[in-house]
Every structure is written in C-alpha cells, then in structure tokens.
Simulated assay, not measured.
Amino acid sequence: MRRTRRSTFAPPARTAFAAGALLLALTALVGCSSAGTDAAPASTKDAGEVSADASPAVEVVRPPAGAQPDYQLGGAYEPAAGVGIVGRDREAEPAEGRYSICYVNGFQTQPNERQLWDPELLVTVDGEPLVDPDWPDEILLDTSTAEKRDRILALVEPWIRGCAAAGFDAVEFDNLDSFTRSEGLLDIDGNLALASAFVAVAHDAGLAAGQKNAAEHAPLLRDEAGFDFAVVEECAAYSECGDYTAVYGDALIDIEYTDNLPRAWSEICDDPETPRSVVLRDRALTVAGDPEHVAAHC
C-alpha cells in the first residue's frame, strides 16, 4: 500500500509542455449514468488512440465543494463526525455515508505487487528495474508505447471497476509524473495517453476521476485526459494551490503534513489560497488511536 507523495516538481520552476498527447477513443456511449439511463459500454481497448473529446459520457459526481476531507491510505478507520470526503486504498472498503475516493497507483508498481507485472512492462536501466528514488519498493511502469499502455490498462482496469463495485464515488491515479523520474525513457505524452484511458474506464464505471499532484500539468490533464477534480499533497507548503484552483476551482482536496508546514497551521487555514477542502495529516497516515495520529481541519 502506498503512503504519501509530495509534488516532485520544484515550485518556482514552471515548464509548459505542448498538448500533443494521445488520448483514448471512446467507441460507444458508456452505461449507467447517475440519472439511471442505459447506454452501451465504452471501449477501452487501445490506450494509445486519439479522442477529440475527453468529457465524460456519463454524469459523474465530483467531491462536495468545501467538505472536510480525511486521507486514510495508512489504514481505514471511522472518520470524524464532520468529515465528508475520505480517501482510501483500493483494497479497503469505502467510508459509509461519505464521499469516498479510491486510491490506485496507475504508473508505478505497488509494494508487494511486483509479481503481478510482466517484466516487459517495467522501465529498466542497464537491465535493472528503475525504482522511484523516494519509494524504492515501487518500479516505474513503461508507458512508452501503445502496446505496453494497453497491457498496463488490462491489469489496472479491473482495479478501477472494482472501486466502483465496492461503492466508491471516485478514483485517484497516483504517479502521473513518473516520467520525470524515468531518466528520459518516458515522456508526458505516454503518461497522458494512459491517464486518458484510465479516466475513460473510470467514467464508464460511473466514477469521477481525480488528478494526483503534477501541478504544472493540471490544465492539460483536465482538458485532454478529462480529469474531474484533483487530490494534491502539500500545495500550501510548496505554493502550488493557486495552480490547481485555477483549473479545478473548489473541486480540489489538499493534504498537508505535520513535518513540512512552512508556517503555523492556523496561518495556512487563514490563507485565501488554501483550498476549502484541506486536512493536516501525519506523514505516515496512521490510524486513529495511534500516538502519532494527526487529522486536523481548519
């Protein structure tokens, strides 16, 4: 189970990428809108095809604006009474009565799940798998070709649909920025094409799709891949909150961490740049009752 990640981009630097990314083509209308209408399921066969419209073909429900969030990747527990949004790992159950977001690591292997992946789908350097320097038990997935993206999608799609079957309202996809750690072997286009395929599956399953971090690419990820909202870490600490709100408005959930606050929590709460939905968590995301547990709201 993955824990946490801060944005890997240095906040002062802003790099613009051309929107030449490949997108998934939807070959049929997707089914089961929240209004209850029936339609044929969308095709998710090729994660490298082009789509002219990234808008969801079903009506998905975005997180409630301004609701208090809790981020529980370290283990599920009963949220506090005022919490309206809960993020949990895909192997956990959604939080009953709360808007629930399912965590999926879509661009790197999860700890203890390397055996699920064909070695051909892992990025290698000199014959050795390329690991995330911040998370040495995670290996980068190879998004460099349409064929490999299709094979990655074939493994991840059941996880996404499993989130919907379990009763989650949305799904977030972590490590969209894996190409920045790939030693030049991956690029934004390959990751954007795969992200587009993930979003199409999520929408087909009736789930809203959340961008995870990657502030610089928020406009591209929303407009081209079709993300509906964002889950971000430490946007206040790294002065990135405005980059996200400019794209997603109040459809934004921020997690700050106790070990990296640039100023007092009360000052962050008073800052108009801070998203309305924000939580202060301990870095290990411990469960309630643990001596290190912190889950504070403004």
Rank of each mutant, 00 (worst) to 15 (best):
Glu234Ser: 15
Glu233Phe: 04
Asp270Tyr: 02
Glu256Tyr: 08
Leu252Lys: 12
Asp259Gln: 04
Glu233Thr: 07
Asp270Trp: 02
Cys235Glu: 07
Ala236Asp: 02
Trp265Phe: 13
Ile253Trp: 09
Asp259Pro: 03
Ala246Val: 03
Ala237Phe: 06
Asn260Thr: 14
Glu256Arg: 11
Thr245Trp: 01
Ile253Leu: 15
Glu256Ile: 11
Pro262Ile: 11
Ile255Thr: 15
Cys235Tyr: 10
Ala236Asn: 11
Glu233Val: 12
Gly249His: 06
Ala236Thr: 04
Asp250Met: 04
Ala237Arg: 13
Leu261Ser: 05
Ala251Lys: 10
Glu234Trp: 00
Tyr238Arg: 09
Tyr244Ile: 14
Glu240His: 05
Tyr244Gln: 12
Ile253Pro: 11
Asp250Thr: 14
Cys235Ala: 05
Thr258Arg: 08
Cys269Asn: 02
Leu252Thr: 15
Ala246Ser: 13
Glu256Asn: 07
Tyr257Gly: 00
Leu252Ile: 10
Ala230Thr: 10
Asp243Glu: 09
Val232Glu: 05
Ala264Trp: 01
Tyr248Gly: 04
Thr245Glu: 12
Cys269His: 06
Ser239Ala: 14
Thr245His: 08
Val232Arg: 00
Glu233Ile: 02
Asp271His: 05
Val247Trp: 01
Val247Lys: 01
Tyr244Met: 15
Gly242Glu: 10
Tyr244Val: 14
Tyr248Thr: 08
Tyr248Asn: 01
Glu233Tyr: 03
Ala251Ser: 14
Thr258Pro: 01
Glu240Tyr: 13
Pro262Tyr: 09
Pro262Val: 10
Asp270Gly: 14
Ile253Glu: 07
Pro262Ala: 09
Arg263Asn: 01
Glu267Asn: 04
Asp250Lys: 14
Ala251Cys: 03
Tyr244Gly: 11
Thr258Ser: 12
Ala264Asp: 15
Cys241Lys: 09
Ser239Leu: 03
Ile268Gln: 06
Thr245Met: 06
Ile253Gly: 05
Cys269Glu: 01
Asn260Lys: 07
Cys235Asn: 04
Ser239Glu: 11
Cys241Ala: 12
Tyr248Gln: 01
Tyr238Val: 00
Asp243Pro: 00
Ile253Met: 12
Ala251Asp: 14
Asp270Ser: 14
Asp254Phe: 07
Cys269Gly: 14
Arg263Ser: 11
